[in-house]
Design a protein around this nucleic acid. Structure first.
Lengths: 255, 255
DNA sequence: CGCAGAGTTGAACGGTGTCAAGTAACGTGG
DNA sequence: CCACGTTACTTGACACCGTTCAACTCTGCG
């Protein structure tokens, strides 16, 4: 709750966009080759944030959009009454701040859940790029559209199903997002606490814990500390798809 | 389930954008004055759709973005198993198809809930406008950002609260959206069935019905047929804010 | 070692889903 | 226009699942 700005600059070797592992997902993805160096020059790279610090706060003026490079962030909505609820997580390759362009103000707090690094593209440089390079216009629109689509899809997951289905769907969603970004998708470390997951899903953390136990018992996945292993993908998909998970009847679960 | 394309063209007098009541919310909102006529010329106006017909289907190639002019549409996700769930509603002034730009394909069915009218801006014309007019780039990005923000905000509403809070929040959201578009916000007709609302909120329609009854009993709102009257806005906000609604104790409700 | 925070597990309560029956609104065809 | 049938909604009773409260374990850190 003390100060919360980013912790100074460039503590990393500053890999140019051309060499970045996320280049395929980040803005340069659809940029013509000759436009990339220019983009690369305008981006502030290698910013880091240690766990618990804010990337931005609700009400803050929008100064830049951020691209997560490593780590995990949570997007938090705080009600006037003071209650917090997690409305989303940001994984490597995802962009923070697009929803704030319209009002020029952030609507949520964004907080690092673990030591994370990110790149920043200041608003005026973004505007400049959009005005001057056709590829960048296309790409910004494409990224926003994609984000919109993903958000929609994520809303369907929240359509009140059983708790186990929700947790399964969450794990699956995470797995898919990691895979799409070229990261391990069947064995990974969760950046977030389960209590954050609970808040995100609208459940209590006890229920999440129980659901996990059930999924573990049915051999769908394994969870030790914060390391998750998907043991049976298709089963996971079935459970996530709404069909309850065989908790009480450990034998036959949706053949 | 028969055919489902739009019902031919221009059955309305085709009001130019400059005279349209929604001009303040639609794309022309932030367009410089001299760019509006050009925009107006490229838009296909006055398309209509009667209740139950599809504006587009999941998997369809994206051919145009649509701006709702009158009526109400629902956005539906159909699971592989065949179960339908409503993921959103489109009100006058809102844009359909922005989330499909990235993949060039629609991800959901969009279905008219009542006789509705809309304008269409074909994809190539949109692209042309974006390339050639600076105001339109700005505006498209602004609209997408706004939509993204609204979607985020709507997700927070779904953060599993009590059923009455959910229903109250839904009514409030609807009221705010209508108000922002210059329509009556305290007495209006719902375009959607309550069962669609139930699906959207992840509840059964019985529970929605009960919640409505509770809200009616507490004097928060009145509902006859599909006509809704908000009787006490602040109380509605309180109930929506998570504090349960005084159902069992009709006397003191959050002073 | 001991404390703090995160997660696990158990028992009882309460809200929603479910099933079922009944009423109101709507559209159709006479 | 009214009788009809269909669909949407209302309301009740009961079971189930998730919340709540509580005690306990595990992990990480000083």
């Amino acid at each position: 709750m003390g100060d919360s700005r980013q912790t100074g600059s460039t503590t990393q070797p500053a890999v140019a966009c051309e060499q970045c592992g996320l280049a395929r997902i980040c803005f340069p993805a659809a940029l013509p080759l000759h436009e990339i160096p220019r983009f690369s020059r305008l981006v502030r790279r290698g910013r880091t944030l240690s766990a618990g610090l804010h990337l931005c706060r609700a009400g803050d003026e929008l100064q830049a959009v951020y691209i997560v490079r490593a780590g995990t962030l949570k997007v938090v909505h705080t009600t006037p009454a003071g209650a917090e609820s997690v409305v989303g997580f940001c994984l490597p390759g995802e962009v923070v701040g697009l929803d704030a362009i319209a009002n020029q103000r952030h609507a949520h707090d964004v907080i690092a859940l673990e030591h994370s690094s990110y790149c920043a593209l200041s608003l005026d440089k973004l505007q400049q790029l959009v005005e001057q390079t056709p590829g960048m216009r296309q790409e910004l629109i494409r990224v926003m559209s994609r984000t919109l689509g993903e958000t929609h899809q994520r809303m369907t997951l929240l359509a009140r199903q059983g708790a186990r289905a929700l947790v399964a769907a969450f794990v699956l969603d995470l797995s898919v997002r990691l895979e799409r970004r070229g990261l391990a998708s069947s064995r990974f470390r969760l950046g977030m606490r389960w209590r954050d997951v609970a808040s995100y899903l609208g459940l209590t953390f006890e229920t999440v814990s129980r659901s996990l136990a059930a999924l573990r018992r049915s051999g769908v996945l394994q969870a030790k500390a914060r390391y998750l292993t998907v043991m049976n993908r298709t089963l996971l998909e079935n459970v996530a798809g709404g069909a309850g998970c065989g908790d009480q009847k450990p034998s036959g679960v949706i053949p």
